[in-house]
């Protein structure tokens, strides 16, 4: 399978390194940097990395990514967003209010833990196919303030949701790509693999 990592700005390289550590039975995982919308046709799933959401929004607007990603999502291809990626995929964004795709029924508040001084790493547990201990790194992170009834919360920090899934959309407020454990990326690749067998060939 081929996973695209949106490479307009942010820690896309860390996501590619995490994908390189993924081992799926019987299926090699290839990754590619996405800078143009036409590249979306070649990939089975997309990762939107951490970075600055205002920068990403600006560049996505400049290069036609808004309609292109709506089409990608409508075609049933999975998308995984971390930090800024979560902000872009959410329904409503606050502080400040800004455009979001609304692909997952969660509302987020930007920089909700504070500035860099308040960034932190903490041990946690994520509910993948089984519970898995994972270090969670939060960098000027957003907070999920509301998760709709159709959303499955997959990890919490102090009782608040920090990782969630709805259908083909997976989001995390923290950065699984910055830890050596490729578990979350492996889970996303399995989402892509299952989706791909369910979809008719393009």
């Amino acid at each position: 399978m081929k996973i695209g990592v949106l490479a307009l700005q942010g820690d896309f390289d860390q996501h590619r390194k995490a994908l390189a550590r993924v081992r799926l039975a019987g299926e090699p995982v290839e990754s590619v940097e996405i800078r143009k919308t036409e590249q979306l046709d070649e990939i089975d799933g997309l990762i939107i990395p951490g970075g600055e959401s205002t920068t990403l929004l600006k560049l996505m607007g400049d290069w036609g990514f808004v309609p292109a990603l709506e089409k990608f999502h409508a075609a049933g291809k999975p998308i995984f967003g971390t930090c800024a990626g979560l902000i872009l995929l959410a329904k409503e964004v606050d502080r400040p209010k800004q455009f979001a795709f609304g692909f997952i029924d969660v509302d987020v508040e930007r920089n909700a833990y504070g500035r860099q001084r308040e960034s932190f790493a903490t041990p946690g547990v994520v509910e993948l196919d089984a519970p898995r201990p994972l270090e969670m790194v939060f960098i000027r992170a957003p907070r999920i303030r509301r998760a709709g009834p159709g959303v499955t919360v997959m990890a919490r920090h102090r009782d608040e949701p920090v990782m969630a899934r709805e259908g083909t959309i997976l989001v995390a407020a923290f950065h699984p790509e910055l830890t050596h454990d490729p578990g979350v990326h492996e889970y996303f690749c399995r989402m892509v693999a299952r989706r791909r067998t369910a979809l008719p060939p393009a």
Binding site: Q9, F12, G51, E52, Q116, A121, I139
Partner: peptide, 14 residues
């Protein structure tokens, strides 16, 4: 600290 290097990672390509 890793969290500080991480913020620099987030600024890449910017």
């Amino acid at each position: 600290d890793r969290k500080h290097i991480a913020l620099a990672e987030m600024l890449k390509g910017g």
